[in-house]
Design a protein around this nucleic acid. Structure first.
Lengths: 220, 220, 220, 220
DNA sequence: CATGAATGAGACTTCATTCAT
DNA sequence: CATGAATGAAGTCTCATTCAT
């Protein structure tokens, strides 16, 4: 009679686990590791508090699982970018734009990372999974920088990780420090117009930085 | 009867308060608001736990006091800069350098701000003191940008707060995300050589950004 | 239809039960009834936790089953001794030696009994099996004591259960209190040399006790 | 008006601690470390569960404190014995009698020690206090044995710790195994008549052991 | 001003046990 | 017979805070 005979089975561990992870991500992002409450997570869930311990072991392990899943997601997204066929500057601008948009779209991830830093990355360090995240973005960036150098578009010699940091810092900060910066300077950083202007700014700043030679040459 | 006016003042209230604030700053910076422990603060102090309640009321009030003192200190420092007599680019580079060094020298402050952002700046918003912190750095930056524009050094039209954000983001991120960034990219961001290179980079990036005109002129 | 009567008997119930009992004996001996964990027992087993409930009902029932099996084993061993043809003193020394060796070889049993005593033998009392364990050792001991009395070797009049207690106490204590006694007096009671000396001592003590007349005769 | 002005003060830490220790001793003796409940201890107390953590830190620490106090008490008692002026055999009989009576009077202590042995003396080992308990009874025993040897009363050469073990084993076992032994042999070991007989037996056994020469000499 | 003792509320975690298949 | 998933009840422990002096 029904098109889905045994669907919505009661015992679906994967779904239960994902359910818990979703709730935990929100809780830890909002309150940090110390401030997050297992009880609160359980209440947001279809299951009980007991299952959190059944599947994840404890608070810290759950936190780590949340962290790992979050980082895995961003890597997956990065891997989907196809920048090889674009001219260096265009590729770079796409990369920056994607980073900007990702951070903007994932404030929970940003907060988790902030939280982890307050904790000196103690949990991340314990995770092989996280430390083995072979950040593909660096390779992409290296290729773009090399291409731009060969094509004579980028005149400055740079290190890819440094450039990635320049990009990340701005995109991350806009979201991570949205509240304090907004309060002090009376600006709503989530406003759409501001967002567009800022995306343009970080793009222009990075591009102009790469285009400017290290040592201002004689012809300047 | 009271021939000894201020005698027997074994304990100096102001000193006790400062003592508590020092301990609390360290504790909250290291563990965040939720993770910070009143007991831990009391133990780092020359006085007892009871005094914390006597002077500050409670945990959240103490946290706010810590936050206010931290922000007040940074404002004091900014006010000391004398940039009026320097050419625009030089002044800008000094300003960036000072910001960079300040963040580098005050990781506790950075972490407090991160912590406050995780909490949506809830406490900062409650504080008149903090919201009235008329950040003088914006005025300084505006003057520099104007001067540079008038002098034909800076060709791009920009908003001072945006530029401040570009600078702050990088300087802040370097410290705030030191641990996760360091772990993922296997770089020790507190290394001296790296520090110098990064200071140069953010300086060059901002300067080259300001020097490049908004719309790529004729040659585009 | 059922041409294969006992085929597909992948799992042998008796073996499974014995498997569980082995694991449970170790667990309860090591941690006591309260400290023993059903999960831990299940993990040491070839089967799952569910089977423990299937076969034994619950934790306490399992504990009782362990206790019963342990006591049944010791009775079996005692029954094998053939002491009838030996002179009284020799028979007694063999009996003591066997008791000593059995306790030494079965620390798990010793600990189970200790554990049961901490619990006031509450479970043992519930077990008809255990209470009906007609301890054959008492009969053996009685015969030996009688024989020794008739032969003029043992001059003291004694009760067999008392003598059994004297023997048991020492043999049991050596194993049951191995750890605290060892720690306080800095002696490793499992050392082979000490073991031999102690076996000799308990033997000599019991024999000399039985040989000495109740009332110190004339020479006193 | 009252002869005890400020007696029965509310804040009397020492009394609170002793109160907790009393309750904990009973609880741990009855149920062992794993079976003992902090809640149950708190309920037996004039104070709350919270105070247990305030003064002792946690369950295991409380257990250790109980253990230490129990051992300290027995040492104090031993130290009070004045045996120097008695003839060797009399002194020995007094010592045995005291040991017997102490164990009989302190079944909680016996159970604690049993419990600790089930746990491999794990907690005792961690305690400097306990390991430094310089068990004076050994020195006493040594003096008695020496004296008896010089006086020609004790003909057997023995080690004091071994003899102490012979005595302890019986006295301890009578209490520790009271329940299982009683159940199996249908004897109530706490019966007064039995107690007297047993005390006589262990005394006679040890004395006759010491009086009998190691190697039955020719004159026998 | 200052202090050690005390505490209620609520956090994290564990356990024996049962359910649905 | 057998299994992985699920669970309510109860345990240990922590925290910011207040009390009595």
């Amino acid at each position: 009679m029904s098109a889905r005979p045994q669907q919505r089975r009661k015992n679906d561990p994967e779904r239960t686990k994902a359910d818990i992870l979703d709730a935990a991500t929100e809780e830890f992002a909002t309150h940090g590791l110390a401030g997050g409450r297992i009880d609160a997570i359980a209440e947001k869930t279809r299951t009980s508090k007991r299952m959190i311990y059944y599947y994840f072991g404890g608070k810290e392990d759950l936190y780590l699982a949340v962290l790992e899943r979050s980082y895995r997601q961003i890597r997956t997204l990065e891997a989907d970018l196809l920048l090889e066929d674009l001219p260096a500057e265009d590729a770079l601008r796409v990369l920056i734009s994607e980073t900007f948009d990702y951070d903007e779209a994932h404030p929970d991830f940003i907060r988790l990372v902030s939280s982890e830093n307050i904790n000196c990355a103690a949990h991340m360090r314990r995770s092989e999974t996280l430390l083995d995240l072979n950040i593909s973005i660096i390779e992409m960036l290296e290729k773009i920088i090399d291409r731009g150098g060969r094509d004579g578009v980028f005149l400055r010699r740079t290190d890819a990780i440094d450039v990635h940091m320049l990009i990340s810092a701005f995109c991350f900060f806009r979201v991570s420090n949205r509240y304090t910066f907004g309060a002090i300077f009376r600006r709503d950083l989530s406003e759409v117009g501001l967002m567009a202007r800022h995306k343009q700014m970080i793009s222009d700043a990075v591009v102009s930085y790469l285009k400017t030679p290290d040592v201002p040459s004689g012809e300047g």
